[in-house]
């Protein structure tokens, strides 16, 4: 396992948000966490990134191990810069007051190796030619779809080992959504492990290898993505069939 989460309990103030969830992600996989609003999907990702409260939850107990290292010992920027885990946050969270190019540069903040940055930049612009065209534009002038691309591009720049994505399909037109998932598949094939949180279970299960169903802070189901898509309960609750 590349990432191993065991009996994780976290909460906001006195309220516990995750009641001891256990799941794992193997090297090279695309794993998805699906579930309704408030199931704890974003909470799980923010816990892994070690983001501080009040936006993110407070860690209570349980294990989070990445490549044999205890994540609870890392500060958020070290999770990114030392372990190579990146998060594409819900709502994109691009820096609208910076240019597209500056958004990528700040994502390379912790990198020293210029050649490595150049290589990554080339890869990013290869996948997202629109961003290269607009690199001198302020990021808040981009369309919603382009902002999502920029958010993914930033995550590619910071990390490389593993990418977490929080609702990347939100607010995207269907064709843009498929374009995005196509790119994610390519990023995965180039060697980045992906943990994907989605409300759109249909598309998530289509692209993922494995999936977990999260409900009110507990893991309800887990399994091969294709099997899950056929599961009666999943079909009824998340695929609307």
């Amino acid at each position: 396992m590349l990432l191993c989460v065991e009996d994780l309990r976290v909460g906001y103030g006195p309220i516990e948000a995750l009641h001891g969830i256990t799941f794992g992600v193997r090297e090279g996989e695309i794993v998805t966490l699906i579930g309704a609003n408030g199931a704890g999907k974003s909470t799980t990702l923010m816990s892994i990134m070690r983001l501080p409260p009040p936006e993110a939850p407070v860690y209570h107990s349980g294990k989070m191990i990445f490549e044999g290292r205890d994540l609870t010992q890392f500060s958020p920027h070290h999770v990114v810069s030392r372990l190579g885990i990146s998060l594409v946050p819900e709502g994109r969270r691009i820096f609208g007051n910076l240019t597209v190019w500056e958004n990528l540069k700040i994502a390379a903040y912790a990198h020293e190796d210029r050649q490595e940055i150049q290589k990554k930049t080339k890869r990013i612009f290869g996948l997202f030619p629109r961003l290269e065209e607009r690199r001198h534009q302020a990021a808040d002038t981009l369309s919603g779809g382009e902002q999502q691309m920029l958010s993914v591009a930033r995550a590619m720049m910071t990390g490389g080992r593993m990418m977490l994505l929080d609702e990347p399909s939100m607010g995207l037109a269907p064709f843009l959504m498929y374009e995005l998932f196509h790119v994610l598949k390519e990023i995965n094939q180039q060697g980045t492990t992906i943990l994907l949180v989605e409300q759109n279970a249909r598309i998530a299960l289509k692209y993922a290898h494995r999936g977990y169903v999260l409900e009110t802070g507990n893991i309800l189901l887990e399994g091969d993505a294709r099997e899950l898509a056929k599961d009666e309960k999943v079909k009824k609750a998340y695929l609307g069939e």
Partner: peptide, 19 residues
């Protein structure tokens, strides 16, 4: 650049590997 980024969205800044 990091200062400007923080003023726009502080939560997203550590995600860039910025202390």
């Amino acid at each position: 650049m990091a200062m400007r980024a923080i003023s726009y969205d502080r939560m997203a800044v550590p995600l860039m590997g910025v202390p």
